[in-house]
Design a protein around this nucleic acid. Sequence first.
RNA 1: GGGCCCGUAGCUCAGUUGGUUAGAGCAGGGGACUCAUAAUCCCUUGGUCGGGGGUUCGAGUCCCUCCGGGCCUACCA
Length: 691
Amino acid sequence: MSTKRQILVTAALPYANGPIHIGHLVEYIQTDIWVRFQRLRGHRCIFICADDTHGTAIMIRARQEGRSEEALIEEMQGNHERDFANFGVSFDNYGSTNSDENREKCAVMWQSIRDAGLVKEQDVEQLYDVEAGTFLADRFVRGTCPDPNCGAKNQPGDNCSVCGITYTPAELIDPVSTLSGSTPEIRSAPHLFIELEQLHEFLEEWTQSDEHLQPETANYLKGHFLGDPKSPEGRKELKDWDISRPAPYFGFEIPDSPGNYWYVWFDAPIGYMASTQQWCNKHGEAFDDWWRDDATEIHHFIGKDITYFHTLFWPGMLKSAGYNLPTKVHIHGFLTVAGEKMSKSQGTFVMAATYLNHLDPSYLRYFYASKLGPRTDDIDLNLEEFVNKVNSDLVGKVINLASRTAKFAHGLGLCETYPDDGGLFKQGAAAGHEIAEAYEKCDYNRAMRLIMELADRANPYVESQEPWALAKDPDKSERLQQVCTVALNLFRQLAIYLAPVLPKLAEQTGELLNDSITEWEQSQTPLTGKPVSKFKHLMQRADLKKVEAMIEESKQEEVPQDTSGESSFQDSDQPLKDEPLAEEITIDDFAKVDLRVARIIQAEHVEEARKLLKITLSLGGEERRTVFAGIKQAYDPEKLTGRLVVMVANLAPRKMKFGVSEGMIVASGPGGSDVFLLGVDEGAQPGQRVH
RNA sequence: GGGCCCGUAGCUCAGUUGGUUAGAGCAGGGGACUCAUAAUCCCUUGGUCGGGGGUUCGAGUCCCUCCGGGCCUACCA
C-alpha cells in the first residue's frame, strides 16, 4: 500500500417517492462495503449520496396528499436516512437534490453546456390538463390508439399496448387525463434539448476504452446507442435529449428560460456534486479538489436500469463542463427473491424497515457480499440459502473461533509473544493481498470465499489443541494461553478482512481484544499482550421462522388483513393512485361491454411469447373463443384448465403476432407476475352474461 | 424477432493464457469430541463439466450448431 488515493464514491440517489426496500439495499450495501474497504486501506474516501426529489411524480403525489412537495420529500428523506443508518451504510454526506447547492451546481453546469453550443430549442406538442393546470407526462394520459387498424381504448400516452405502435400523446384519440379525468388539449411549448450527438466521438472513446465500464456495459452501449463505425450497420446517431419541462413542475426553473424547469434527470446526477459541496462546506474542503482534479478518482455505483443516464449523458455533461469524468461506473444487477422478481403479493417485496423488525442487518450485508461479483448479473436471495449461509459461515466458522476460546483467555489475556501456530497466521496474512484485490474489483463473493477458506483452517487448529482439556489442568495454563492467543488472533484476522462487510463485528472484536480495528494492515501482525474482555455473544443465529415472519409481514402490507372487526381493513390507496378512476359513464355505455362467464377448456404456452398464454374458452355448448392473455408469468396453464373466468365477449377480434385474439379475460393487477384473474362463485355457468 | 450473458456434483459456485485421475462450501451418509450459539473435527457418497459436431497430440476451457434459462429491446398485459 504505497500511495494514498483520493476517492469520491456515490451510490444512486433514491427517489423520494417510496421507501427503501431490500432491492435498493443491494446497491447501498455493495457501495458501502467498497467505501469501508478503501477507508480501511488508508485511502481518503468519501461516500456521497442524496435523495432525488424532483419531477412530476412527486408533484402529483404531494398534490394528492394535500401537502407541499417540500413536506413530502422531507418525510421521505427522514425515512431513507433512518433505514440506511440501520443497515450501517456510512455516508459522509446525504443531501437532497432540492437544495441551494444543487440549484447552483445546475446553473454552472447549464451555462457550460450552453457555452459549448450543445443546447437547442424546439417546440414540443404535449397534452395540457386545463383543470389540473399542468402538462401531462406520457403516463398520465390515456386514450384510444390512433392506429386505424387497432383503435384500442384506454392506452397510455406513449405507445399502444395492443398493437405496439408508438406515438406522441397528442396523437391519441379521445385522450383523458388520469389526474383530473378531463379532456386535455394540445398545447405547444418550447423545450430545450441537449444535442448529445455532438459528443459522439468522445463518448465512443470513453465508453469503449475498457477502463471505465464493465465490458458487457460497453457492449450494450455500442449495440443500442452508439453503433459501431466498423460494422455494416455503421454508427448510430445519439438522440437529442429533452431536458426541460414547462411549468408547473417540481424542480428548478432554468435561469435563462423562465417558465421552464430542468427535467429531473438533469439535476439528479448533479446532486452528487451538490452533496459533495455540502460536505466540503462542513469540512472546510475545496470542491475542486474532488471534482476538478485528475488525481481524484470518482466511482459511481448504480443499477443497470439507469445505465443510460450515467454512461452517456452524465459523462457528456461532465466533459462539456470540464469536470472530472467518472473513473468507473460500477453497475450491478437486480435482486430476485427465490428466483423471481420481488412481488408484493408473495411478500418478497420487503421494505428495509420490515426486514429490521425481524432480522439482523449483518446477515443481509454478508449474504449480499457472498453473492455479489463484478458483473451486472442479477443476484438471487434464496431464503433457505440465506439462513444456511449466515449460520454456517459466520456463526459456525468465524464467530465460533472466538466463542470457543475467549472464555478461557478472559483471565489470561493474550501472550506477550505470539506463539508458534504452524504458520497459520502467516498464511492468513499472505491471503490478505488476494482478498484485497477481490474487494477492489468488487468481486466480493471471491473475497468471502477466500476468507472462509481461512476460517476452515482455523477451527481444526483449535480442535487439535484441545483448549478445554488444557483448561482442566492448572499446570498447563501457559499452553492454554498460547492456544487461545493463536485462535483469537486468527479470529481477529478474519474480523479485519470482514470489516468492510461486517463493521459491527469488527467493532465488537476490538472491544473483546481491547484493540480497535481501524486498518487493513492490522491483519498482517498478530496482536499480543492485550487483556481479553469477558465474552459476549457476537451474533445471533439466523432463524428461518423469523425470515418467514418477515415475508408474512410484507404480504400484509399489500394484502388486506382478514380480521373480523368492522371496517378494520387497511387497504393501501396505492392502486387507485396508480390508476385513477376513469371518466363517468352511463348505464348504456356499460351495456355495450358484454361480459360473459367462460370456462377455460385449454391453456397453453405460446413458446415465443414472454407474457402470453393461448387460451381456449367455452361459452357453453359448442361456442369457443381463442384468447391470448398476458398472464404467463402469473399462472401455470395446467392449473387453469376447467376454471371459470369472466371475458369481454364482444370485443372486436384482434390480430396479434401469434394469432387472432377473440376477446379478453378480465384481470386486475399491475402486470407481470402480479395479475389476478377474476373468479366466479359456485353455480355460475359458462355463457351467462355479467350484468 | 434483434442484442448480451449463462448452463460444472441435490443447492450455491471455483476452475488461471486449452495440458496429467474436474475442485470448494452447504446439504446427504458414517464416525469422533463436548470448549462453543444442536456449534466443531475426521472420513465419505455424489458430476458422460446442457446435447451433438469440429479444431488439436490434448477441451469444462477454442469454433459451429441445437436445447434450456436469465437480462435488455421489441411485441404483449
